[in-house]
Simulated scan of single mutants.
Amino acid sequence: MCFSATASFVAGTALSATGAVTLAETKKKSDIPFASIPLLFGIQQFVEGAVWLSFQYSAQIFNHIATYAYLGLAYVLWPIFVPLSVGLLETDSHRKKILYGFQFVGLAVGLYLLYFILSNPVASQIVNKSIVYSMPSQYGVLLVGMYLLATCVSPLFSSHRIINILGVLATVSFSITYYFFTASYVSVWCFFAAVLSLVVYLYFMKGGNYQI
């Protein structure tokens, strides 16, 4: 998270607990990926807590490992996983076909970013009490746009209203975060997205019955 190791670990604990409860509410195998989103965000917050600790104890090798792990989750996992998990819940055949397109975009973005993470030096540093992750890549604006299509826009095409709300909140939070925390938006937005993933819990508490 953008504030401290303690905040990251507290958020990670809360999200992991919520994720465990959410997974317990699943009724079908196709529910499991979407239900696991809070748990995965919890793991991501624990990883960023480790990044914070690496600065505190000047552990360069530990920082290197934790930074790669965090970027793998933030840049590779989410653009692939979000449209896939939303698509698995979809029952409307037309919407499902549209979501296939988002899954293709997400896979392309995730694999492209994985290539750059593995083939280029990456780094993290503390700037203005936030963690800034740096990684060389090409097609910046296009890449961000495709990433947002996969992670934020794809939920808008679900027939489930709560999932639509998740997409709207994720898009709004990204816009606000990018405007106010441009340098560290990866860290800050991932924290807000993690909190928003609690909407996933509401989806299963409502039985997933609120459809458009």
Rank of each mutant, 00 (worst) to 15 (best):
V122K: 07
A123K: 05
I126E: 13
Y179L: 12
G145A: 06
P136D: 14
V168W: 09
L196Y: 07
A123E: 13
Y133Q: 06
P155E: 00
S184R: 03
R161W: 01
S173V: 03
S197Y: 07
L142D: 15
T151N: 01
L118G: 02
T177E: 01
S124K: 04
S119N: 15
G140W: 13
V199E: 10
H160Y: 08
Y133W: 02
A123Y: 12
S130Q: 15
Y139N: 05
S137M: 04
F181H: 08
V186K: 00
C152S: 13
V172G: 11
L156G: 06
A193Q: 15
S154Y: 05
Y147T: 08
S154I: 01
N120C: 07
V195G: 14
L142C: 07
F157A: 03
V141Q: 11
L143M: 12
L166F: 10
V153W: 09
I162P: 00
F191K: 09
I162W: 00
S119I: 05
V199W: 15
I176D: 12
A194S: 13
S158A: 14
S119T: 11
G140I: 15
I163C: 12
S197C: 06
V168N: 08
H160A: 02
Y179C: 01
A194P: 10
S119D: 06
I117P: 03
Q138P: 04
P121S: 12
Y133G: 00
K129R: 11
F174G: 05
N120L: 11
A183G: 07
I131N: 02
Q138W: 06
H160K: 13
C152P: 04
F174R: 01
I165P: 00
A170G: 15
H160P: 12
A193R: 10
S159G: 11
Q125V: 10
N128Q: 06
L169E: 15
L202D: 06
V132P: 00
L142W: 08
V172C: 06
S130E: 14
L166V: 00
V127E: 11
V127H: 14
Y201K: 10
A183S: 12
V188P: 06
P155Y: 08
L148E: 08
T171F: 09
F181T: 11
Q138L: 10
S124R: 02
L142V: 03
S134K: 15
V144W: 04
